[in-house]
Simulated assay, not measured.
Amino acid sequence: MTAPARRLCHIAFHVPTGQPLARDLQHLFGFQPLAAREAGGWRQLALRSGDAVFLVNEGSGPGEPLYGLNPCHSVPSATNLCFDVDDAGGVARALAARGCRVPVPPVSVWDAQGAASYAVVSSPAGNLSLTLLDRAGYRGPFLPGFTPVSSAPGPGWVSHVDHLTLACTSGSSPTLRRWFHDCLGFRHLPLSLGEDPELGLEVAAGSGRGGLRLTALQTPPGSVVPTLVLAESLPGTTSKQDQVEQFLTRHKGPGLQHAGLYTPNIMEATEGMVVAGGQLLTPPEAYYQQPGKEEQILAAGHKPSLLARQGILLDGDNDKFLLQVFTKSLFAEGTFFLELIQRQGATGFGQDNIRALWQSVQEEAARAQEA
Rank of each mutant, 00 (worst) to 15 (best):
F29P: 00
D87G: 03
P62T: 09
A96I: 05
A36T: 12
T17W: 14
L28H: 10
G59S: 01
G40N: 11
P76D: 10
A92D: 08
R48S: 01
G99D: 07
E58H: 06
S49P: 02
R48E: 00
A88M: 13
V104K: 07
F31K: 08
H73N: 06
V107T: 15
A112P: 07
G40E: 14
E38C: 10
D111H: 06
R48G: 03
E58V: 00
L28A: 07
P71S: 03
L34R: 09
L69C: 03
G30Q: 09
L55Y: 02
R48D: 06
V53Q: 06
V85L: 01
S49A: 15
H27K: 09
D87P: 00
V104G: 08
A78I: 12
S108A: 15
L45H: 01
P20T: 10
Q26S: 12
G68K: 04
W42K: 06
A39W: 08
V109T: 10
V91Y: 09
E64D: 11
L47Y: 07
D24V: 11
P65W: 02
G40R: 05
L81D: 03
G30L: 09
R93Q: 14
L45R: 11
D86T: 14
F31R: 03
N80H: 08
D111I: 02
L81T: 07
G90M: 04
C82T: 15
C72S: 14
A94N: 08
P106G: 09
P33M: 12
L21E: 13
A36I: 03
G40C: 05
G68H: 00
L28G: 02
C72M: 08
V56F: 05
C100D: 15
P33A: 04
A22Q: 11
G41H: 06
P65F: 07
L95P: 00
P65A: 01
E38D: 13
L95Q: 08
A92T: 11
Y67A: 00
V109L: 14
Q113E: 15
N80A: 10
R98W: 05
H27A: 05
S108M: 10
L81I: 07
